[in-house]
Design a protein around this nucleic acid. Structure first.
Length: 404
RNA sequence: GGAGAGGUACCCAAGUGGCCAACGGGAACAGACUGUAAAUCUGUCGGCUAAUGCCUUCGGAGGUUCGAAUCCUCCCCUCUCCA
């Protein structure tokens, strides 16, 4: 195991706060002395089936701890997921069914280990302890906290001030997350900055239970591909680590230029000195930022797929968007029809390229449709179905049609 | 339980009897431009229709009216104050 100083240096990279830092130093020292790894906790609520880049900021931090020889504990919030974390939220989260959550939890577990080492990771569902609690237990937990403390939180205050509803069950979320730490005796918990309140609550609970309180380590919240809101599935501005190389690469290319640097910093393993160089070049605009974006896309595809696929993704992108050529592979659609011709609009809806006829008409009027490289302007066109037809809809949808 | 305010399209948000398929903004989509699926600009943005047009929509259900998102009745939901 590395020395305390060296460990601390690594741990601090890319973190916002460590509270309290002296305690972490002390914990690291005693861990080293007793050769006993620290218990590092992070929780995830499986509210969507995918792990996205936003999650990986924390998971990568865990990986660091893992590499340093500490014990990583993942808490899958099957119970907290049903409540929905109000942190940073301006409205109540929709409540998910238990089945849905368990199902998401399965895909989560698979995706975690694209980053973490499975054998060295301990996974717990918080239903393990919550499902066994009686109403009495829950009341006991609730009695340790006051309304004033809960309402201190910015998100609740905002909602209250704006006269938005706050459901009672949401007030329990911090208590549940805090209790998780008690249940697994965490030494340190990693969470995004907006989690600070929940993380701190755990310290209080642990102390009251006679445990040494956990150190909290906060990491930045990753902005989504829109550059405005935090990355999340529900706002659709996310990049899932299980997505195809082409999608990951393309989505990276769609992020605003200002996001290039933060993404490098939080999502890649690029060494410090190179980071500085990138930052400088982006600021001075010496180089077209697109180039840095492409490299970023490649880094990420390499991380979650492979180097080879990363190269392919870039080649494809260049082909389609820079050179405006065709992609390598185009899906073939078998159109069932006994007519030799078909109305364009119908063709677009039948193939699922457009959701409605109106949308298809619009698209054609706007010049977004090409058939066999010819721009189609006539929305009444009857398309001859002889042989194979190549459709291009908008910039990025391609389809080959063949009549069955 | 009492008094008041509110529920409008994916989101925010105007609209208080016909000029409303519903202002504006965001998102999304298309086009132009750019060595970016960035930025910027332009356009589109309920459905069906070649089109004049037709059909469905403003929390839900009824009603008044030639005509309702707008008025009335009941119901559901949210917020505020009182208890």
């Amino acid at each position: 195991m590395l020395g305390v100083k060296k460990q601390l240096e690594l741990i601090k990279r890319g973190t916002i706060e460590i509270i309290p830092e002296e305690e972490l130093v002390r914990k690291l020292e005693s861990s080293l002395k007793q050769n006993k790894p620290l218990r590092i906790k992070m929780g995830f609520d499986p509210t969507a089936p995918d792990i996205h880049l936003g999650h990986t900021v924390g998971i990568r931090k865990l990986k660091q701890f893992q590499d340093l020889g500490h014990q990583v504990l993942l808490i899958i919030g099957d119970y907290t997921g049903m409540v929905g974390d109000p942190s940073g939220r301006s409205e109540t989260r929709p409540q998910l069914s238990y089945e849905k959550i368990r199902k998401n939890a399965e895909t989560y577990q698979k995706q975690f280990f694209k980053i973490l080492v499975k054998e060295k990771t301990e996974i717990h569902f918080n239903g393990e302890w919550f499902s066994r609690m009686s109403f009495q237990d829950i009341m006991g937990l609730a009695s340790k906290f006051t309304l004033a403390r809960i309402l201190e939180r910015d998100d609740f205050t905002e909602r209250f001030k704006n006269q938005n509803p706050i459901s009672l069950h949401e007030l329990f979320y911090p208590l549940m997350q805090a209790y998780d730490s008690v249940a697994i005796k965490a030494d340190l918990e990693v969470g995004a900055t907006e989690q600070k309140f929940n993380l701190l609550t755990a310290r209080q609970f642990q102390e009251q239970s006679g445990q040494e309180p956990q150190v909290i380590l906060t990491i930045p919240v990753l902005a989504g591909t829109d550059g405005l809101q935090r990355m999340s599935k529900s706002t659709g501005n996310y990049i899932g680590i299980d997505e195809s190389p082409g999608e990951i690469f393309g989505k990276i290319m769609s992020i605003p230029d200002e996001l290039i640097y933060p993404y490098y910093e939080l999502l890649t393993d690029i060494p410090e000195d190179e980071l500085l160089k990138i930052k400088k070049e982006l600021e001075t605009r010496e180089i077209n930022p697109m180039l840095w974006k492409k490299r970023l896309g490649k880094e990420l595809v390499t991380l979650y797929h492979s180097q080879k696929e990363a190269n392919n993704a870039q080649t494809e992108f260049d082909k389609i968007f820079s050179k405006k050529e065709l992609p390598e592979k185009i899906e073939l659609f078998h159109l069932k029809s006994d007519q030799p011709k078909i109305w364009v609009v119908k063709l677009l809806t039948e193939t699922g390229l457009c959701a409605s006829s109106s949308e298809a008409r619009r698209l054609i009027k706007q010049g977004g449709l090409y058939i066999d490289h010819q721009r189609i302007k006539d929305e009444n066109l009857q398309v001859d179905l002889k042989g194979e037809k190549l459709l291009k809809v908008g910039k990025r949808k391609f389809l080959k049609i063949v009549r069955d």
